[in-house]
């Protein structure tokens, strides 16, 4: 039996009168699904992610996540823990001085003790092949390393869903292959924004297009 993780219905969102991003948009995500979210530049794909985790609020429509309707900021705190959002620019995500602190940030916020957090850090880094990165300084990492550490920081919260915003953006072929390999083997449900067709074909099974404010399954 499939379990509904997200249901967005009748979502309307505009930054201002001229920039209407979503009009009466519907979106559903079942557990185990791996969806590619495609659409033109500026179509509002990132905004959709932000709406899903409550960083933005829709002007109308309902957001149901993990079986509950979410409206207030405090409803979304739980959603953010269970739906891990990977940002386009890893520099936005890695704000702690060291890798260990950054990966531990989420677990500590979820109420884990420093000791538990340290165990999570070690196992998460190891699972991504980043052993020994604990004490590295985040801003001295290469672009590829930053992306993988940012993914580790999201995975450390053990989310049910991953929302990946252009994860292969600005990666070299080798790092992209490595990231693809990691994502293919992850158990989580995924929604992936990308313009890289080859990558999407490997990582996702379904496709949703965002066009003129509406979402359609292809």
């Amino acid at each position: 039996m499939s379990e509904l993780l997200f249901r967005l219905s009748g979502i309307h969102f505009a930054y201002d009168r001229q920039r209407i991003v979503l009009r009466d948009a519907d979106f559903e995500l079942q557990r185990g699904e791996r969806i590619a979210l495609v659409g033109r530049n500026g179509a509002g794909k990132t905004t959709l992610f932000h709406l899903m985790v409550g960083l933005q609020r829709p002007q109308s429509g309902t957001i149901e996540a993990f079986g509950k309707v979410r409206t207030a900021e405090k409803d979304f705190v739980e959603v953010r823990a269970r739906a891990g959002l990977l940002f386009q620019d890893s520099d936005d995500q890695l704000f702690c001085p060291t890798v260990a602190e950054d990966v531990a940030f989420g677990p500590l916020n979820l109420g884990k003790s420093a000791q538990e957090a340290r165990i999570i850090v070690r196992s998460t880094l190891a699972s991504l092949g980043l052993e020994g990165f604990e004490d590295r300084i985040t801003h001295k990492l290469s672009g590829g390393q930053k992306r993988l550490v940012a993914l580790a920081a999201v995975l450390a919260m053990e989310p049910d869903v991953l929302l990946l915003d252009e994860p292969t953006n600005a990666l070299d072929a080798e790092t992209e292959a490595r990231l693809t390999d990691i994502l293919v083997h992850l158990p989580q449900s995924l929604v992936v924004i990308s313009h890289d067709e080859e990558f999407l074909a490997r990582v996702t099974q379904a496709r949703v297009r965002l066009e003129s404010g509406r979402l359609t399954r292809e």
């Binding site: 960083l55 823990a81 936005d92 995500q93 602190e101 531990a104 940030f105 500590l108």
Partner: peptide, 24 residues
Amino acid sequence: ERSERIVAAMRCRGFQGRLPSLAD
């Protein structure tokens, strides 16, 4: 804009105004 994105990313990982410390 970057600082806004950083705070958004922090909120995504459960930030609610206090920075926890890993350092024992």
